[in-house]
Amino acid sequence: PDPCYDENGNPRRCIPDFVNSAFGKDVRVSRTCGSPAARYCVVTEKGEERTRDCHSCDAGDPKKSHPPAYLTDLNNPHNLTCWQSENYVQAPQNVTLTLSLGKKFEVTYVSLQFCSPRPESMAIYKSMDYGKSWVPFQFYSTQCKKMYNRQNKAAITKQNEQEAICTDSHTDMHPLTGGLIAFSTLDGRPSAHDFDNSPVLQDWVTATDIKVIFSRLHTFGDENEDDSELARDSYFYAVSDLQVGGRCKCNGHASKCVKDREGNLVCECKHNTAGPECDRCKPFHYDRPWQRATAREANECVACHCNLHARRCRFNMELYKLSGRKSGGVCMNCRHNTAGRHCHYCKEGFYRDMARPISHRRACKACDCHPVGAAGKTCNQTTGQCPCKDGVTGITCNRCAKGYQQSRSPVAPCIKIP
């Protein structure tokens, strides 16, 4: 059964599965440790006592490397793999993770599970145009004002639902490992409960790419003391799992996304819609404007009514409004000698053959009005009767009426018999 249609075949809203769209994808990272190999140290605490275990990060050695692939590989709690940055990349320097989702997604959350202490400051951005431009999604910092010039936990109102918030929650240095940062895109947004009817929030959660910028490391404050090198080798960013939870964006017109011929991820559009996000109507289905599907209404696109006489049509808003928002399609290039918005009558010089339905290829016959006996070339749409000159008769005006005879004048072809 197709989730986009009910058991009676009627269209209904359908949405792709909820997935971790980051899983298995490549993440572009600005500064990963191991090239060249370098020492790093892990601090553990037992009560007041801190111990430091040092290791080597070596990109050339699979056992000692911490590549970006570990961000989105299978997250096995019993065997954590951690991506790790170079040591002591401290503000104003930062480390950037960039993830391309491959198409528009409606993001529900972005989460990061850390192997190191969580950053003191970090920012999450999104792009809606495949990385051309970036919009802030969320900031985390113990010093929101100083780091991002934003108020801590600013209120979100109906007027600024697309505002990125800065919060100091989740910015503790502890736990030293295993800390989680999870950003929920709709948290605290006033219209979240009515997402279906909120184009602003639908736009807000839409992303093609996610970028995470680690802006400031937490430290114990020993990075400038004696033996600062050892201390600095203990400060780095390390993440075991980057997740971007959400759904492939298909505007309610598809239940899954598939790879197209070029390998791009696209929606498997139903309801006569088209485009990577099912965000327009497919050709010839312009009888009403495209709309996103809602829980109540599938808003499928409807084919134009052209009685099989046209392959193309266009939408006309005025007609649509005049019809009470029922039908606005206008057929283009009516064939088979038909005409009208729906190719539903015969064009000038032709008349209906009532023995055939209007959708028949030969539903319109030529009038065939006599070049001299008829006063014009256009005949009656339903009878085929041509307009005859005085004294002339016949459906095509090709003979003189009773009491008349043919003359030599093409202007008055039939004259009364004296």
């Binding site: 070049p371 001299v372 016949g394 090709n398 003979r399 093409p410 072809p413």
Partner: peptide, 24 residues
């Protein structure tokens, strides 16, 4: 009674050249 159809050959097109059908 069958009515004879208009005979195009009988018409005098002098002064009405512009009205004359192409194929006449």
């Amino acid at each position: 009674e069958v009515m004879p159809t208009l005979d195009m050959a009988l018409f005098d097109w002098t002064d009405y050249e512009d009205m004359k059908p192409v194929d006449t």
